[in-house]
Structures are given as structure tokens and as C-alpha cells.
């Protein structure tokens, strides 16, 4: 088992079970207990690599649970999981993935391939299907990373059953995603140029504007709150790895290019 570098199997051997079984007796019904969900996350390709952004609100029914959630999670130096859905399961997925990748790298003395990483996430989602169908653990993530083999950044999005789809230019997920999906399509098709040719500043501005649009129409997506110094989490993935954008940078762009008409 260790020889194969399979951390998930190692956990199973230790008696750990990833998914809660939704269809067993005594399982909870999602309608009886409102779950923390609601989100907008997006990933887009720009000239230097991939940019991943997410709002910070977690809701349960009509309640705002928390306004400082980080939904753009670094899995390793070169990959990011942007999560939408039930946070408990999503954070657990991120932890399993993070440990799987580093366990593989350290035991096999080579990095897990980008395809291998995608497959690992698919497997987790597949194992999670019973919980997702019972309404207690649906997660619809975006996985973005730098494929060192091909030398480019890549974006993939998933359905709750674990099917993976490549987002050629961008991908969106979460309750607020339908609002911004159309905007992205329009801009990419008939805007000043394809999003993949945007500079870092333009891509970052676009991400902030998109999240602000989503927050406008989706009550489960949190907007920017300048007084509380509350900004979305935005990270870039380039050949140098994953780097978050500082709050100061976001603040400057937000006040200069997002808050009012430009």
C-alpha cells in the first residue's frame, strides 16, 4: 500500500471513512436542517496563468453563518481547489487531497501528475455520492493548477458525481455562478479581447467585478465590505506556483475600478 503512494488506501486501512453514508437509517434530511452552502467561485485563464477567486460568505438557509470563509484552498504548490457546496465535506476533501499529493510526492519521489490529481478528486467525489444525494454533502468544486508537464495552467470543474470537465477559458461554480457565467461568455466572445489575453491587473479587476455582480443578485454570495476590510480571496497560479493577492492590492483595485463607474 505504502509502496503505491496511495494515501487514501492508507487511511482506509487505519479505519478512516471519508463519506458519511446518507442512505442509512437515521440519516438526516437536508430539508429538516438547512446546511451551510451558497457561494460564487470562479477560475479564469489570463496571460500569466490561472486566476482563482471566491467570495467569503457561508450561509445556512437564509442565515449568514460566516463572512470570512476561505473557499480558494491551496492543495499544494501548484494547485488550488475552489469549493462550492457543503463546507464540512469540501474542507475534508481539500485535506485528503493535500495529504494525498504530498504523501505521493514524498513516497514515490516524484510529483503526482496533473491527471493523477484530477483523478484523485474525481474519486473523492464519487465516494461522496451517497452523502451528496442524501443532501448532506454535495460539493461542486473547481480544480485549477499548473501542469508542469505541458507548461500551462489548467482549469477543471466537476459535477457532484465526480465527472470532470475542462474549462478551456474559465469555469464557475456555486449559487451565484449563473449570474456571472453569461457575463464571462459575453466578454470572452465580444469584449475587447479574449480573457486569456488579459493582463494580471485586468484579470484581477474582472474577477472582483464578477464577484460583486454575483453578490448583487445572489443573497448567498458575500460582497466586498470595505469598512470591515472584507475582500474576496483571489490567488494566481503560474509556473512559480500559487500566490495569493494581498488585501492592499485588492483594496486599491476595488476602490479604483470596481466601486464606482470607471
Amino acid at each position: 500500500m505504502g509502496g503505491q503512494g496511495d494515501f487514501f488506501q492508507l487511511l482506509k486501512d487505519q479505519g478512516y471513512e471519508f463519506s458519511c453514508r446518507g442512505n442509512e437509517r437515521g440519516s438526516v434530511s437536508a430539508t429538516a436542517y438547512p446546511l451551510t452552502t451558497g457561494t460564487t467561485v470562479l477560475a479564469l485563464k489570463y496571460q500569466d496563468g490561472v486566476l482563482v477567486a471566491g467570495d467569503r460568505r457561508a450561509t445556512a438557509g437564509n442565515l449568514v453563518m460566516y463572512d470570512r470563509t476561505d473557499k480558494v484552498l491551496e492543495i499544494d504548490r501548484y494547485s488550488v481547489l475552489a469549493i462550492a457546496g457543503v463546507p464540512a465535506t469540501a474542507f475534508e476533501m481539500a485535506r485528503v487531497l493535500g495529504h494525498s499529493f504530498k504523501y505521493y510526492r514524498r513516497s514515490q519521489l516524484q510529483d503526482l501528475s496533473f491527471e493523477g490529481k484530477l483523478r484523485a478528486l474525481s474519486t473523492l467525489l464519487k465516494n461522496n455520492v451517497p452523502a451528496a444525494l442524501a443532501g448532506t454533502g454535495a460539493v461542486v468544486p473547481i480544480f485549477a493548477g499548473f501542469d508542469s508537464e505541458d507548461g500551462i495552467g489548467k482549469i477543471f470543474f466537476y459535477d457532484i458525481l465526480g465527472a470532470e470537465f475542462e474549462g478551456v477559458d474559465y469555469a464557475v461554480s456555486g449559487s451565484g455562478s449563473s449570474t456571472i457565467r453569461g457575463i464571462m461568455f459575453y466578454l470572452n466572445q465580444w469584449g475587447a479581447g479574449p480573457i486569456s489575453e488579459y493582463s494580471e491587473e485586468d484579470a484581477l479587476t474582472l474577477a472582483l467585478r464578477l464577484l460583486t455582480s454575483a453578490a448583487e443578485f445572489d443573497s448567498a454570495t458575500g460582497g466586498v465590505n470595505t469598512q470591515a476590510k472584507l475582500y474576496p480571496v483571489v490567488k494566481r497560479i503560474t509556473a512559480q506556483g500559487v500566490q495569493p493577492f494581498s488585501v492592499d492590492r485588492l483594496k486599491n483595485l476595488y476602490t479604483g475600478k470596481v466601486a464606482g463607474h470607471v
Binding site: G2, L10, Q14, R106, S107
Partner: peptide
């Protein structure tokens, strides 16, 4: 090395 890796990663995860 392998037994240390197993020990470290299971502990670090759990």
C-alpha cells in the same frame, strides 16, 4: 522511510 511516511501523514491528517 515508508513506515515513517505512513506514521507522519496519518498523524498529520488525523
Amino acid at each position: 522511510r515508508f513506515s515513517l511516511l505512513d506514521l507522519a501523514h496519518v498523524e498529520g491528517f488525523q
